[in-house]
Amino acid sequence: MIRIRTFAAGSVLLASLVAGAIADVPRPSTARYVSSPGGERSAAPGYHVLAADFHVHSFPFSWSTLSPFETVIDARHHGLDVVALTPHNHLWVAQVGEWFSRMVDGPLVIVGEEITHKGYHLIGVGLRETVSNELPASEAIVQIHRQGGVAIAAHPYRAFWPGFDAAALAALDGTEVIRPDSLRNEAGRTELQTFLARTDAAVIGATDYHGLGPVGVARTYVFARERSVQGVLDAIRDKRTVVYDEQRPYGDPTMMQLLEQTGGMPREVPVSPLPGGLALFSRAAALGMLAAVLLFNRMT
């Protein structure tokens, strides 16, 4: 009897795994090459339009559930072309992810750090060395720039505004304006846009990914002259970014126009976990069977 129950439980779990693998369809990359304004007559080279997420955490040491290996695979799975791994106050998990992505021909991984200071949180992207989280924001930005990186204000909601003085606001390269927690939160969205208006920074859409839900729910379309880390960093410095929420695009008007002329970008924001019968079966069967095993097992 016990063997039959064990076999049945194992079979249901295996079936949920198979259903999950089938339902877990990858989202294709939307990367494309667009000509500069002026089209064929323009002498300037065009842009690689790359989907990027600049605020992604990995396990361990960053309150995230997925290791850098799964994070990189997950980013590719969700059609991201560029991902900045940004552990809290250290770099090495990001460096592991960057190495792994090169091994598996994954998305372009940029090594970064989320500097968590009492008064502000700041993303440094394109770093070689850790930036101390005890510096004022303006000095942290100087340190980031000294390494050739770019500085992005992380979730600059009202509570973090005092952390950015005038020098910091002037020196920021980018600021998050679209995040999963602001998509349907009017007050939060207004705070992010108010902060943006105080800066001359590029618009950034970022997930602040901690392993819950899909990476890249909020993403930045970057217009890079070349498909490289340097190309992406230069694009942020030059504010060649566009982000979408459910209502409209934000960012450089020229780039928005360019994007619209070439068909735009998918605007749908996946707000719910994988729909469909197979996905529902995979979740319900696995979670239900594990609960049943826990409650009705015969182990003494």
Binding site: L13, S16, L17, A19, G20, A21, A23, D24, T65, L66, E70, I73, D74, H77, G211, L212, G213, P214, P273, L274, L278, A279, S282, R283, A286, L287
Partner: peptide
């Protein structure tokens, strides 16, 4: 389940 919405072998 929390990451992908399903139990998938890749995670």
């Amino acid at each position: 389940v929390l990451s992908a919405g399903v139990v998938t072998p890749r995670i």
